[in-house]
Protein backbone atom coordinates (compact mmCIF):
# COMPACT_ATOMS: atom_id res chain seq x y z
CA UNK A 1 0.00 0.00 0.00
CA UNK A 2 1.83 3.07 -1.21
CA UNK A 3 0.18 6.26 -0.06
CA UNK A 4 1.21 9.85 0.37
CA UNK A 5 2.52 10.55 3.86
CA UNK A 6 3.38 13.82 5.56
CA UNK A 7 7.07 13.04 5.05
CA UNK A 8 6.50 13.48 1.30
CA UNK A 9 5.74 17.12 1.94
CA UNK A 10 8.38 18.04 4.50
CA UNK A 11 10.84 19.36 1.94
CA UNK A 12 13.49 16.73 2.53
CA UNK A 13 14.71 13.70 0.67
CA UNK A 14 11.20 12.21 0.31
CA UNK A 15 9.80 15.36 -1.33
CA UNK A 16 12.67 15.38 -3.78
CA UNK A 17 12.20 11.70 -4.67
CA UNK A 18 8.45 12.15 -5.05
CA UNK A 19 8.92 15.05 -7.45
CA UNK A 20 11.47 13.13 -9.47
CA UNK A 21 9.14 10.15 -9.73
CA UNK A 22 5.92 12.06 -10.38
CA UNK A 23 7.12 14.86 -12.62
CA UNK A 24 10.76 15.29 -13.49
CA UNK A 25 11.51 11.77 -14.72
CA UNK A 26 8.38 11.77 -16.87
CA UNK A 27 9.40 14.78 -18.91
CA UNK A 28 11.56 14.61 -22.04
CA UNK A 29 14.54 16.98 -21.91
CA UNK A 30 12.94 19.62 -24.17
CA UNK A 31 9.95 19.96 -21.83
CA UNK A 32 12.00 20.72 -18.75
CA UNK A 33 13.03 24.22 -19.81
CA UNK A 34 12.61 26.85 -22.47
CA UNK A 35 15.65 26.89 -24.75
CA UNK A 36 18.64 28.62 -23.09
CA UNK A 37 16.59 29.08 -19.95
CA UNK A 38 16.42 27.36 -16.59
CA UNK A 39 13.69 24.96 -15.55
CA UNK A 40 13.23 21.52 -14.07
CA UNK A 41 16.61 20.52 -15.51
CA UNK A 42 18.19 21.98 -12.38
CA UNK A 43 16.49 22.24 -8.99
CA UNK A 44 16.55 25.89 -7.90
CA UNK A 45 14.13 28.40 -6.38
CA UNK A 46 12.71 29.64 -9.65
CA UNK A 47 12.72 29.17 -13.43
CA UNK A 48 13.99 31.50 -16.14
CA UNK A 49 13.12 32.27 -19.75
CA UNK A 50 15.64 34.23 -21.85
CA UNK A 51 14.38 37.63 -23.05
CA UNK A 52 16.08 40.72 -24.44
CA UNK A 53 18.98 41.81 -22.16
CA UNK A 54 18.34 39.14 -19.58
CA UNK A 55 15.80 36.68 -18.22
CA UNK A 56 12.16 36.63 -17.24
CA UNK A 57 12.25 34.77 -13.94
CA UNK A 58 9.15 32.99 -12.60
CA UNK A 59 8.30 30.95 -9.55
CA UNK A 60 5.25 29.33 -7.96
CA UNK A 61 4.69 28.03 -4.46
CA UNK A 62 1.72 26.73 -2.48
CA UNK A 63 1.70 27.93 1.12
CA UNK A 64 0.06 26.10 3.96
CA UNK A 65 0.89 26.53 7.61
CA UNK A 66 -0.71 25.61 10.91
CA UNK A 67 -1.53 27.84 12.73
CA UNK A 68 -2.46 30.33 9.99
CA UNK A 69 -1.65 33.24 12.30
CA UNK A 70 1.64 32.75 14.13
CA UNK A 71 3.94 35.00 16.16
CA UNK A 72 5.76 37.27 13.70
CA UNK A 73 3.46 36.77 10.74
CA UNK A 74 0.68 34.88 9.03
CA UNK A 75 0.00 32.82 5.91
CA UNK A 76 -0.54 35.93 3.77
CA UNK A 77 2.79 37.50 4.68
CA UNK A 78 4.50 34.13 4.21
CA UNK A 79 3.02 33.69 0.71
CA UNK A 80 4.07 37.18 -0.44
CA UNK A 81 7.55 37.18 1.12
CA UNK A 82 8.31 33.60 0.12
CA UNK A 83 7.61 34.24 -3.55
CA UNK A 84 9.54 37.52 -3.58
CA UNK A 85 12.51 35.75 -1.97
CA UNK A 86 12.45 32.90 -4.48
CA UNK A 87 12.78 35.43 -7.31
CA UNK A 88 15.63 37.24 -5.56
CA UNK A 89 17.56 34.00 -5.05
CA UNK A 90 17.89 33.62 -8.81
CA UNK A 91 19.24 37.16 -9.05
CA UNK A 92 15.96 38.73 -10.19
CA UNK A 93 14.25 41.98 -9.26
CA UNK A 94 10.65 41.02 -8.28
CA UNK A 95 8.02 42.72 -10.46
CA UNK A 96 4.62 41.07 -10.04
CA UNK A 97 2.70 38.36 -8.24
CA UNK A 98 -0.46 36.37 -8.98
CA UNK A 99 -2.32 34.48 -6.28
CA UNK A 100 -4.76 31.61 -5.91
CA UNK A 101 -6.58 31.31 -2.61
CA UNK A 102 -8.46 28.17 -1.57
CA UNK A 103 -10.55 28.62 1.54
CA UNK A 104 -12.58 26.22 3.67
CA UNK A 105 -16.28 26.86 4.00
CA UNK A 106 -16.98 28.43 7.38
CA UNK A 107 -13.68 30.33 7.65
CA UNK A 108 -14.21 33.70 9.33
CA UNK A 109 -14.40 36.48 6.74
CA UNK A 110 -12.28 38.68 9.00
CA UNK A 111 -9.51 36.06 9.12
CA UNK A 112 -9.40 35.81 5.34
CA UNK A 113 -9.38 39.61 5.04
CA UNK A 114 -6.47 39.81 7.49
CA UNK A 115 -4.47 37.29 5.46
CA UNK A 116 -5.08 39.11 2.18
CA UNK A 117 -4.32 42.47 3.81
CA UNK A 118 -0.98 41.28 5.09
CA UNK A 119 -0.12 39.77 1.70
CA UNK A 120 -0.95 43.10 0.02
CA UNK A 121 1.00 45.04 2.66
CA UNK A 122 4.18 43.08 1.90
CA UNK A 123 3.76 43.51 -1.87
CA UNK A 124 3.07 47.24 -1.51
CA UNK A 125 6.13 47.70 0.68
CA UNK A 126 8.29 46.05 -1.96
CA UNK A 127 6.74 47.84 -4.92
CA UNK A 128 5.55 44.53 -6.38
CA UNK A 129 2.26 44.48 -8.35
CA UNK A 130 -0.55 41.98 -7.76
CA UNK A 131 -1.71 41.40 -11.32
CA UNK A 132 -4.13 38.50 -11.09
CA UNK A 133 -5.56 35.70 -9.03
CA UNK A 134 -8.32 33.25 -8.24
CA UNK A 135 -10.36 32.20 -5.23
CA UNK A 136 -12.11 28.89 -4.57
CA UNK A 137 -14.14 27.61 -1.63
CA UNK A 138 -14.00 23.96 -0.49
CA UNK A 139 -16.76 22.29 1.57
CA UNK A 140 -16.16 22.25 5.31
CA UNK A 141 -13.74 19.53 6.41
CA UNK A 142 -12.19 19.09 2.97
CA UNK A 143 -9.41 21.59 3.66
CA UNK A 144 -7.86 22.77 6.89
CA UNK A 145 -8.47 26.52 6.80
CA UNK A 146 -6.80 28.42 3.99
CA UNK A 147 -4.23 27.57 1.34
CA UNK A 148 -2.54 30.31 -0.71
CA UNK A 149 -0.58 29.76 -3.88
CA UNK A 150 1.48 32.61 -5.25
CA UNK A 151 3.29 32.86 -8.57
CA UNK A 152 5.95 35.52 -9.00
CA UNK A 153 7.54 37.23 -11.98
CA UNK A 154 10.81 39.15 -12.03
CA UNK A 155 13.62 40.28 -14.28
CA UNK A 156 17.29 39.32 -14.02
CA UNK A 157 20.10 40.59 -16.19
CA UNK A 158 22.20 37.64 -15.02
CA UNK A 159 21.11 34.48 -13.19
CA UNK A 160 22.48 33.03 -9.96
CA UNK A 161 22.23 29.30 -10.64
CA UNK A 162 23.27 27.16 -7.69
CA UNK A 163 25.69 24.89 -9.57
CA UNK A 164 28.66 27.24 -9.75
CA UNK A 165 30.28 26.80 -6.34
CA UNK A 166 34.06 26.43 -6.58
CA UNK A 167 36.58 25.13 -4.04
CA UNK A 168 37.64 28.08 -1.90
CA UNK A 169 34.23 29.78 -2.02
CA UNK A 170 32.92 30.97 1.33
CA UNK A 171 29.42 30.16 2.59
CA UNK A 172 27.66 33.14 4.20
CA UNK A 173 24.51 33.13 6.33
CA UNK A 174 22.86 36.57 6.18
CA UNK A 175 21.06 36.07 9.49
CA UNK A 176 19.85 33.65 12.16
CA UNK A 177 18.86 30.17 10.98
CA UNK A 178 15.86 28.03 11.90
CA UNK A 179 13.85 30.92 13.38
CA UNK A 180 10.63 30.51 11.39
CA UNK A 181 10.55 26.74 11.83
CA UNK A 182 11.09 27.08 15.57
CA UNK A 183 8.30 29.65 15.86
CA UNK A 184 5.85 27.37 14.07
CA UNK A 185 6.96 24.36 16.12
CA UNK A 186 6.58 26.33 19.36
CA UNK A 187 3.09 27.50 18.33
CA UNK A 188 2.08 23.92 17.43
CA UNK A 189 3.35 22.66 20.79
CA UNK A 190 1.53 25.56 22.48
CA UNK A 191 4.77 27.02 23.79
CA UNK A 192 4.06 30.73 23.99
CA UNK A 193 7.14 32.85 24.51
CA UNK A 194 8.46 36.12 23.14
CA UNK A 195 11.56 34.12 22.23
CA UNK A 196 9.79 32.47 19.31
CA UNK A 197 8.79 34.85 16.52
CA UNK A 198 8.96 33.98 12.85
CA UNK A 199 11.57 35.92 10.87
CA UNK A 200 9.37 35.94 7.75
CA UNK A 201 10.20 38.96 5.60
CA UNK A 202 11.09 39.88 2.04
CA UNK A 203 14.86 39.92 1.51
CA UNK A 204 14.82 42.55 -1.23
CA UNK A 205 16.74 45.21 0.70
CA UNK A 206 19.38 42.67 1.63
CA UNK A 207 19.79 40.89 -1.70
CA UNK A 208 19.30 43.58 -4.36
CA UNK A 209 22.38 45.65 -3.37
CA UNK A 210 24.47 42.47 -3.51
CA UNK A 211 23.02 41.45 -6.87
CA UNK A 212 23.72 44.90 -8.29
CA UNK A 213 27.33 45.08 -7.09
CA UNK A 214 28.68 41.54 -6.82
CA UNK A 215 26.65 39.25 -9.07
CA UNK A 216 29.77 37.85 -10.77
CA UNK A 217 31.17 36.63 -7.47
CA UNK A 218 27.94 35.20 -6.02
CA UNK A 219 28.02 31.55 -7.03
CA UNK A 220 24.87 30.43 -5.23
CA UNK A 221 22.00 31.96 -3.25
CA UNK A 222 19.12 30.23 -1.52
CA UNK A 223 16.71 31.00 1.28
CA UNK A 224 16.72 27.93 3.54
CA UNK A 225 12.96 27.48 3.85
CA UNK A 226 11.43 23.99 4.00
CA UNK A 227 14.21 21.50 4.76
CA UNK A 228 16.38 24.19 6.33
CA UNK A 229 20.06 24.94 5.83
CA UNK A 230 20.85 21.21 5.82
CA UNK A 231 18.83 20.71 2.63
CA UNK A 232 20.31 23.76 0.87
CA UNK A 233 23.91 22.83 1.66
CA UNK A 234 23.38 19.26 0.48
CA UNK A 235 21.74 20.48 -2.74
CA UNK A 236 24.69 22.76 -3.31
CA UNK A 237 27.36 20.14 -2.64
CA UNK A 238 25.66 17.77 -5.07
CA UNK A 239 24.84 20.42 -7.69
CA UNK A 240 28.38 21.85 -7.80
CA UNK A 241 30.22 18.59 -7.12
CA UNK A 242 32.17 20.00 -4.17
CA UNK A 243 32.51 19.19 -0.48
CA UNK A 244 31.20 21.83 1.90
CA UNK A 245 32.76 22.15 5.36
CA UNK A 246 30.60 23.96 7.90
CA UNK A 247 31.77 25.12 11.33
CA UNK A 248 29.20 24.55 14.09
CA UNK A 249 30.83 27.26 16.21
CA UNK A 250 30.03 29.83 13.50
CA UNK A 251 26.38 28.90 12.90
CA UNK A 252 24.00 31.75 13.77
CA UNK A 253 21.55 29.55 15.70
CA UNK A 254 19.69 31.59 18.35
CA UNK A 255 19.85 30.03 21.79
CA UNK A 256 16.05 29.64 22.19
CA UNK A 257 15.95 27.80 18.84
CA UNK A 258 18.72 25.43 19.94
CA UNK A 259 17.01 24.83 23.30
CA UNK A 260 13.64 24.12 21.70
CA UNK A 261 15.22 21.75 19.19
CA UNK A 262 17.03 19.85 21.94
CA UNK A 263 13.77 19.50 23.83
CA UNK A 264 11.91 18.19 20.78
CA UNK A 265 14.77 16.14 19.34
CA UNK A 266 14.96 18.10 16.10
CA UNK A 267 18.09 19.36 14.30
CA UNK A 268 17.85 23.17 14.01
CA UNK A 269 19.71 22.95 10.70
CA UNK A 270 16.61 21.28 9.23
CA UNK A 271 14.24 24.05 10.39
CA UNK A 272 13.08 26.75 8.00
CA UNK A 273 14.18 30.37 7.90
CA UNK A 274 11.91 32.79 6.06
CA UNK A 275 14.03 35.90 6.57
CA UNK A 276 17.60 34.79 5.96
CA UNK A 277 19.59 33.59 2.96
CA UNK A 278 22.64 31.45 2.39
CA UNK A 279 25.18 32.65 -0.17
CA UNK A 280 28.25 31.04 -1.69
CA UNK A 281 30.68 33.77 -2.75
CA UNK A 282 34.19 33.85 -4.14
CA UNK A 283 36.85 34.53 -1.49
CA UNK A 284 37.90 37.82 -3.17
CA UNK A 285 34.58 39.53 -2.44
CA UNK A 286 33.66 37.93 0.87
CA UNK A 287 34.58 40.94 3.00
CA UNK A 288 32.83 43.37 0.67
CA UNK A 289 29.70 41.22 0.74
CA UNK A 290 29.77 41.01 4.53
CA UNK A 291 30.24 44.79 4.84
CA UNK A 292 27.32 45.42 2.49
CA UNK A 293 25.19 43.04 4.57
CA UNK A 294 26.17 44.85 7.78
CA UNK A 295 25.24 48.20 6.19
CA UNK A 296 21.82 46.80 5.29
CA UNK A 297 20.89 45.65 8.75
CA UNK A 298 22.29 42.10 8.73
CA UNK A 299 24.40 42.51 11.85
CA UNK A 300 24.60 38.77 12.36
CA UNK A 301 25.79 37.92 8.84
CA UNK A 302 28.86 35.72 8.91
CA UNK A 303 30.89 33.10 7.13
CA UNK A 304 29.75 29.66 8.30
CA UNK A 305 31.87 27.45 6.11
CA UNK A 306 33.66 26.95 2.82
CA UNK A 307 33.77 24.80 -0.27
CA UNK A 308 36.61 22.33 -0.83
CA UNK A 309 37.64 19.86 -3.47
CA UNK A 310 35.40 16.82 -3.28
CA UNK A 311 37.12 14.07 -1.30
CA UNK A 312 37.08 10.71 -3.04
CA UNK A 313 34.79 8.96 -0.56
CA UNK A 314 32.43 11.72 0.49
CA UNK A 315 31.07 14.39 -1.80
CA UNK A 316 28.99 15.83 0.97
CA UNK A 317 28.56 18.39 3.70
CA UNK A 318 30.83 17.87 6.71
CA UNK A 319 30.09 19.62 9.99
CA UNK A 320 33.02 20.38 12.27
CA UNK A 321 31.41 20.21 15.70
CA UNK A 322 31.80 22.51 18.71
CA UNK A 323 34.03 20.05 20.53
CA UNK A 324 36.37 19.36 17.60
CA UNK A 325 34.62 16.29 16.23
CA UNK A 326 33.08 15.90 12.80
CA UNK A 327 29.98 14.41 11.25
CA UNK A 328 28.13 14.42 7.97
CA UNK A 329 25.36 17.01 7.81
CA UNK A 330 22.67 14.89 6.19
CA UNK A 331 19.72 16.30 4.27
CA UNK A 332 16.53 16.11 6.34
CA UNK A 333 14.53 12.95 5.94
CA UNK A 334 11.18 11.83 7.31
CA UNK A 335 8.42 13.67 9.09
CA UNK A 336 9.57 15.80 12.00
CA UNK A 337 7.73 14.57 15.11
CA UNK A 338 8.37 15.23 18.79
CA UNK A 339 10.35 12.56 20.58
CA UNK A 340 9.41 10.52 23.62
CA UNK A 341 11.95 11.42 26.33
Amino acid sequence: MSKISLAHGSGGVETQRLLERLVINRLPAWMKKVENGLGLDFPDDAAAIPVKNGYLVSTIDAYTVSPIFFPGGDLGKLAAAGTINDLLMLGARPLAVLDAIIVEEGTAMDDLARLVDSMIAVLRGEGVCLIGGDIKVMPKGQLDGVLITTAGLGFASKLIVDNNIKPGDKIIATGPLGVHGAAIFAAQQRIFSHEFRSDVKPLTKILLPLIERYIEGIHAARDPTRGGAAMVLNDWARGSDVMLVVYESELPLPEPVVNLCEMLGVDPMTLASEGAALLAVSPEIVNDVLNTLYENGCGEARVIGEAREKASSIGVVVLKTLVGGARILEPPSGEIVPRIC
Partner: peptide, 23 residues
Amino acid sequence: VSAEGACSIWARLGGRERLVEVV
Protein backbone atom coordinates in the same frame (compact mmCIF):
# COMPACT_ATOMS: atom_id res chain seq x y z
CA VAL B 1 12.23 5.38 13.80
CA SER B 2 12.94 7.07 17.09
CA ALA B 3 15.15 10.09 17.70
CA GLU B 4 16.93 7.71 20.11
CA GLY B 5 17.29 4.83 17.66
CA ALA B 6 20.90 4.21 16.65
CA CYS B 7 20.11 3.75 12.94
CA SER B 8 17.94 6.86 12.86
CA ILE B 9 20.65 8.87 14.62
CA TRP B 10 23.34 7.69 12.21
CA ALA B 11 21.07 8.35 9.24
CA ARG B 12 19.93 11.81 10.25
CA LEU B 13 23.13 13.04 11.84
CA GLY B 14 25.66 11.50 9.50
CA GLY B 15 27.26 9.07 11.92
CA ARG B 16 30.56 7.91 10.45
CA GLU B 17 33.85 7.07 12.03
CA ARG B 18 37.14 8.52 10.81
CA LEU B 19 35.87 11.68 9.16
CA VAL B 20 38.36 13.99 10.79
CA GLU B 21 41.11 13.04 8.36
CA VAL B 22 39.28 14.70 5.49
CA VAL B 23 38.67 18.06 7.15
